[in-house]
Amino acid sequence: MSWQPAAELQVLRRRAQLLATIRAFFAERGVLEVETPLLGSSGVTDPAIEPFIVPDGEVLDTPRFLQTSPEYGMKRLLAAHGEPIYQVCKAFRDGESGARHNPEFTLLEWYRPGFDHHALMDEVARLVQTCLGERPMHRLSYRALFIRELAVDPFTATRDDLALVASEYADTGSMAGDRDLWLDLLMTHVLEPRLAERGACFIYDYPASQAALSRIVQEDGVRVGQRFELYVDGVELANGYCELTDAAEQRARFEADNALRRERGQQERPIDDRLLAAMAHGLPDCSGVALGVDRLLMLAIAADDVAEVLAFPWRSS
């Protein structure tokens, strides 16, 4: 059993340098650094994200959830003060382990009142260039990406159409699922590797079914979630939203997530009533984004495995 760190000392130094660069970037722009709890009384409802749960403790009356992102706490701060804020913290996701995933990882998350998602993409681009050096930053809509690369419209194609296209690229055996499953399969198996050739590229405006916590608008005859992802050299680096601010719709989305969880035999999650109360009080129009700091460091040193940038990766933590 090795007690030695996985990352080399020069990589740990690069990490410290990146964190200093990030803090200087936001200090210069008047964005306030904040901290919110890592152990929350509610967890994320998204059926594709599983939190770690702390079941008991002397001061716990109900189980607590290690936060999968600091989003809910930060939105409560936004509702209270309306100030631009950022946070660098650990986030935890059960089951996410691989060459680009460590179940415990470092996130940079920030919120910009008054920004739409395109304005926030501009700022993300500047931050990434500040950290990784100048490079062209491309922008392509989710719809244009699928049509250009696969000649299929991700908004109007039927589930069977998408499954058929997917079957050209992957052997999935008897896998079954909805439209989003096949879209995700095409994204991860075909499009993400091709995005590597585009260097740095934002993909924006997702199908409403993949809006997560972004605002949904009607555009070109389809319902679009104002969400974006940034891929750098094929690595998914950041996920952002023009934020949903409507408390009633937020509640409906939480409940729909839990309905899907029930249907799939997953445990339902308690809904964060404090977040909903904050949104009812009034969340300013804003955009927010979460960026993986470990992956940023991977890109900075051209690492193939996240373990190379962590002092103690999951298996030796």
Binding site: A48, G98, H101, M187, T188, H189, E192, R227, E229
Partner: peptide
């Protein structure tokens, strides 16, 4: 190989 889009279904290749 574990792969996952930013949000959504995770797969193992």
């Amino acid at each position: 190989e574990f792969v996952k889009p930013g949000k959504g279904q995770a797969f193992n290749r």
